[in-house]
C-alpha cells in the first residue's frame, strides 16, 4: 500500500449494498482530496458500528474508538495537535444516545472539529433497534412493536449546545454533501453535519426514495446562515432552531447556521499559554538526549511558590 492522495484504501467496504454510508464515504474522500489536505494531516475518528468502520476505508489517519466516545478521543487529538484536521464519524445512536454528553460538551467548547452523524434512525449492526432519532410510534421492520421513545432533533441540540456550524445533508446527494463537508472543515470551530443516511436493511420507512421526494436545499430558497457580527447571533440562532423543526413533506438540507465570530477553544488556550499554537503539546521538546528539560533548577523555578528557604538561626 503506497502513499495515496485519493483517500481510498484497498479494503473491501463491507457495508450492505445500497447503504447510505457509501455516499458519505465518497463525499468525504472527494472533499479531502479537493481541500488539498495531506493524508497525514487528517485524523478521522469514529465510534462503533457500521459508521465506525469509515476510517478504515479512508486513506488518512484513522482512529476507530469506542461506542459513543469518538468526540472525546478526537478532542484529545485536536488539543495535542491543533494544526491537524480532525473529523468525527458516528452513528445517531453513538453520538446522540450513549455519547450525547460528549456531543453537547463539544458544542460548549467550540473546538475546531467536524462531526458527521450517519443518521439512519436505527442501530444497524445489532439488527435494527430504534435509535435516538427514530420518532415515537413508528415501527421499522425489525422492531417487534412501535417505538415508545421520541426522537431528539440533532440540529436543534447542536444549535443549543453551541456548535458554530450546523448543517444537514442527504447521503445520496454526494456532490452537495461533499461541499458541506468542505465548508465544515474550513470553518473554525465545532461543526455538525447531520447526514440523512438510509439503512437499506433495517429502515424500511426512511428510504432513499422517501427522502428524494422531500429534501430541498436551503440555499435554493435564499437561506442566509452566516452570523457576520456577534449582534446578529440571537436572531440567526433562533431562526435556525425554528428551521430545524421542519420535517415531513419538505425536509431542508444545507447549512442552517454558521457563526465564525466566536472564539474557539484553541484560541482560549492560546490566550493563556502563549506558545500553544507554535508548540502544541505533541510538538514540545520534553528532553534533551534523554535528560528532562525540567531539571532541578527548573523544577524549583516553576514551583517556586511551594519552595521555602530555611532561615539561618539566631
Amino acid at each position: 500500500m503506497g502513499l495515496r492522495l485519493d483517500y481510498k484504501t484497498d479494503l473491501w467496504v463491507d457495508w450492505c449494498p445500497g447503504c447510505g454510508n457509501f455516499g458519505i464515504l465518497t463525499a468525504m474522500q472527494k472533499a479531502l482530496a479537493e481541500l488539498g489536505l495531506k493524508p497525514w494531516e487528517v485524523v478521522i475518528v469514529s465510534g462503533i458500528g457500521c459508521s465506525g468502520k469509515t476510517p478504515h476505508f479512508i486513506y488518512a489517519n484513522g482512529v476507530h474508538t469506542l461506542h459513543g466516545r469518538a468526540i472525546p478521543f478526537a478532542t484529545g487529538v485536536k488539543l495535542a495537535r491543533p494544526d491537524l484536521t480532525v473529523i468525527v464519524d458516528g452513528g445517531d445512536g453513538d453520538l446522540l444516545g450513549i455519547g450525547a454528553g460528549h456531543f453537547v460538551a463539544l458544542g460548549r467548547r467550540n473546538l475546531d472539529i467536524t462531526v458527521i452523524i450517519h443518521d439512519n434512525q436505527v442501530y444497524g449492526l445489532t439488527k435494527g433497534q430504534a435509535s435516538p432519532t427514530l420518532p415515537a410510534g413508528v415501527k421499522t421492520k425489525a422492531l417487534p412493536k412501535p417505538n415508545l421513545q421520541d426522537a431528539v432533533n440533532p440540529l436543534a441540540l447542536a444549535l443549543s449546545s453551541g456548535y458554530t456550524f450546523v448543517a444537514r445533508a442527504f447521503a445520496m446527494d454526494v456532490e452537495h454533501l461533499k461541499e458541506i463537508i468542505k465548508a465544515a472543515v474550513k470553518h473554525r470551530g465545532s461543526a455538525l453535519i447531520d447526514v440523512l443516511q438510509p439503512c437499506v436493511t433495517y429502515n424500511d420507512l426512511y428510504t432513499t426514495p422517501w427522502y428524494r421526494k422531500r429534501v430541498y436545499k436551503l440555499e435554493d430558497e435564499g437561506w442566509d446562515p452566516v452570523v457576520r457580527d456577534p449582534s446578529e447571533r440571537p436572531v440567526k440562532l433562533a431562526r435556525a432552531i425554528e428551521k430545524a423543526q421542519e420535517w415531513g413533506d419538505r425536509i431542508p438540507v444545507g447549512i442552517f447556521y454558521q457563526d465564525p465570530t466566536r472564539d474557539t477553544l484553541e484560541d482560549r488556550i492560546a490566550s493563556r499559554i502563549p506558545s500553544y499554537r507554535s508548540l502544541p503539546p505533541a510538538l514540545q521538546r520534553i528532553d534533551s538526549n534523554g535528560t528532562p528539560i525540567v531539571g532541578e533548577r527548573e523544577l524549583k523555578a516553576i514551583f517556586r511558590d511551594r519552595l521555602i528557604r530555611v532561615k539561618k538561626h539566631h
Binding site: 472525546p72 488539543l79 460538551a105 488556550i269 514540545q284
Partner: peptide, 30 residues
Amino acid sequence: SLGGVVVFQTEDEIAAISAAIGAALTGARA
C-alpha cells in the same frame, strides 16, 4: 519558557481518559 501543560476539564471521566488517549496517540505525554 519551557513550554506549557494543557489541563483540560472534561464532561466526565470517560471523556477524560478518552481525550488523554487521543492526545497520547499524537506523541504528547498525557
